[in-house]
Design a protein around this nucleic acid. Structure first.
Lengths: 195, 195
DNA sequence: ATTATAGGCGAACGAACGTTCTATGTCAAG
DNA sequence: CTTGACATAGAACGTTCGTTCGCCTATAAT
């Protein structure tokens, strides 16, 4: 049972490699090539197993579409839980950061943060924020707003009729826009990359 | 010229919709369907234009693979720059957060942060960190480490022979591991989702 | 020893594939 | 009005597609 598990793992890995290298799933004859099978029907049966495991699935046209291999990140628990043993690791769910962070593909934009006015909320200069341009802003949301001709990122506070933009840094003061407040979008996520 | 631009935009949008709904790029006859063309050759030529624009590209086997439509997020400038007009917006580059944040697909893991010991570095409880299990940790990196039987996330400081784990919160104290320090991975990115 | 099971081979099928060709219609520039 | 560029239609081609079938060979179970 051990060696057949190894073979399966290797095939999942090969399938994933093909998908991420070529940008599409292979045909059955290509599956034969990457699995080193000289008959399509062997590839066909091998794919059937991967399908049952959720690694991939099939169209109504029979074409292969990626399943779990599409999502590159394995989800573990919390920091305290630490890393599981390699055996458990295989059972981990995977997720795509694109799917995780972006609700509305058409309305999503990436903006680079350059000020430190939101550093109290864990948004530092150099971070990237994902902004949803379509979403209607609620009180408490972090918004990208144009007030008096300048663009800023601030907390939005609505109290009845009054609207205030509040920074998350005590060195800055809340802004009470006079006439022209335009809210361009709502910050739905923050992303920071190291190294 | 205006209406032909509109048609192109609509086709790019339709193509993107097909790709994200079906998990693969269409065949030429399917392109004909989604573009409402009753001949494959019309679809073939229409695809040629999209190819020149970088929306998609072709295999050596002629199969379509996604180009810019694969990446869901449009990159804009800084917060101060604000949002461009819809006209410029079309020219924006796009990026996939998966590709942006993950270098090593096999070694990448997602961990949820539950403590506040790194809140000084803008990593708050509830955030998710992307951990690279394969990377060798350098001094100054944020690492996931097991010290004396407990898992934590801390800055790593190496000074000659001595190794210290330093939190980014003054309420916690630096840890000088006695014997058993295991570093499981390096934090390569932080991700926070609102709402 | 016999049977059952699983995996791979090789050939075959119709359908769908990418590509190319010619023909037709549309619309703006000359 | 004529011309030329362009977009679409429609047919045709050789190739590859997904799928199925029968056969062979191991390995494991009875």
């Amino acid at each position: 049972m051990k060696s057949s598990d190894d073979k399966l793992r290797a095939r999942i890995s090969d399938m994933s490699a093909f998908f991420h290298k070529n940008g599409r799933m292979p045909s059955f004859s290509e599956v034969g090539e990457i699995f080193h099978l000289s008959s399509k029907s062997a590839a066909y049966k091998a794919v059937g197993k991967l399908e049952k495991m959720g690694v991939l699935s099939k169209d109504k046209r029979g074409k292969l579409i990626p399943g779990s291999i599409k999502s590159p990140v394995k989800i573990l628990g919390t920091v305290e839980a630490g890393f599981p043993s390699p055996a458990e690791e295989e059972l981990a769910d995977t997720i795509s950061l694109d799917d995780f962070l972006i609700k509305n593909r058409e309305a999503a934009f990436l903006l680079k943060v350059s000020g430190d006015s939101m550093s109290g909320a864990g948004i530092l200069p150099g971070d990237m924020v994902i902004v949803d341009k379509g979403q209607t802003p609620k009180s408490g949301d972090i918004v990208i707003a144009e007030v008096d001709g300048e663009w800023t990122m601030k907390y939005l506070r609505k109290r009845g009729e009054s609207v205030t933009l509040i920074p998350a840094n005590p060195n800055y003061k809340p802004i009470k826009p006079k006439n022209d407040l335009k809210i361009a979008g709502v910050v739905t996520a923050v992303v920071r990359k190291y190294g």
